[in-house]
């Protein structure tokens, strides 16, 4: 080990400034730390597979004559419109991949800070609890938006490029807003969902299990309750079913369950409120010097 005061201490002659976004270093560092994990890089890259498949679908839809032998009776599926985009955003595989990405990239966002007692370091800086949580949430915003809003808007642009006209945009001028709106809903929901679970344990591995467990268990619970009570309202117990209901509503499609979409929005909002309350309590409880 190097000897003490090898280079001496000198005062810093700069001036400490007030940041416009004090949470930004937390976000940037959170994203960087996630990409240092090899497993995460692999999962993250894999999460773009649905976007790629739908992009191929777009291309094929514009070249139906060329791909007639491959497409056969599936050409109805390749009728590009809001339904096509709704299918991209609400399909089970995309939602599961988002959960997968967040489990491997964001489970430790708060859990690791609690485990290694670093919350006291954050709060000994000029940071508020809101700054801290916003910094952590923005990491999730980044991952979810890059898997939802970005591919969604890219798909629209490629549709216009492949079609060679703006007709599609003129037919559905609200579609980009729907894409942004549903992406925002997914982003906010998953940010609260993951941070809530991350704040409940010191061990990031347990948090990964919780993130998957609750997501899958809610589906299983829905299946069991539905088989017992035979009512579509049991879908409100399922995280993915609620997200799909909300997605179908935002894209103006027929709802997958015979339940008013407002109920699903209420359930999702309820989970976010619960998460906010728990986060407020958990983060405050360790905002002390031991």
């Amino acid at each position: 080990m190097a000897t003490v005061r090898e280079k001496g201490y000198s005062h810093w002659d700069g001036k400490l400034g007030e940041r416009r976004f004090p949470w930004w270093p937390i976000t940037r560092t959170g994203i960087q730390l996630a990409f240092r994990k090899k497993r995460f890089k692999f999962v993250f890259a894999g999460a773009f597979v649905p976007a790629f498949v739908f992009l191929v679908g777009l291309y094929v839809s514009e070249r139906l004559e060329d791909f007639k032998s491959f497409v056969r009776e599936s050409d109805r599926l390749l009728n590009i419109g809001p339904k096509y985009f709704s299918a991209y955003f609400t399909n089970d595989s995309l939602l599961f991949l988002i959960v997968l990405v967040l489990a491997f990239g964001a489970a430790g966002l708060i859990a690791d800070d609690i485990k290694h007692s670093s919350l006291q370091l954050y709060f000994s800086r000029p940071l508020s609890k809101t700054d801290y949580l916003l910094g952590k949430m923005s990491v999730i915003f980044f991952f979810v938006l890059i898997l939802t809003a970005l591919p969604g808007l890219v798909l629209v642009i490629f549709k216009l490029i492949f079609a060679g006209s703006f007709k599609f945009f003129l037919d559905y001028p609200w579609l980009p807003l729907s894409i942004l709106g549903y992406s925002a809903l997914l982003t906010v929901f998953f940010a609260f969902y993951v941070l809530l679970l991350s704040a409940l344990s010191k061990n990031a591995r347990y948090v990964i299990v919780l993130i998957f467990g609750i997501y899958i268990f809610s589906n299983v619970l829905y299946g069991i309750l539905n088989s017992i009570f035979r009512t579509p309202y049991m879908a409100l117990f399922s995280v993915s079913a609620n997200l799909q209901q909300a997605g179908a509503f935002i894209f103006g499609q027929k709802l997958p369950q015979a339940v008013p979409a407002g109920w699903s929005f209420l359930v999702l909002a309820g989970i976010c409120v619960l998460a906010a309350v728990v986060l407020n309590r958990k983060i405050r409880s360790v905002e002390v010097i031991k």
Partner: peptide, 26 residues
């Protein structure tokens, strides 16, 4: 602080500069 505290997955330079930034340093 008294207790051990660090951010997992970081090296010392990143850790120290990170908290410098959070204090308001460029």
């Amino acid at each position: 602080p008294e207790s051990d505290c660090f951010v997992a997955g970081m090296d010392a330079v990143t850790f120290t500069s990170y908290f410098g930034e959070l204090s308001g340093m460029p």
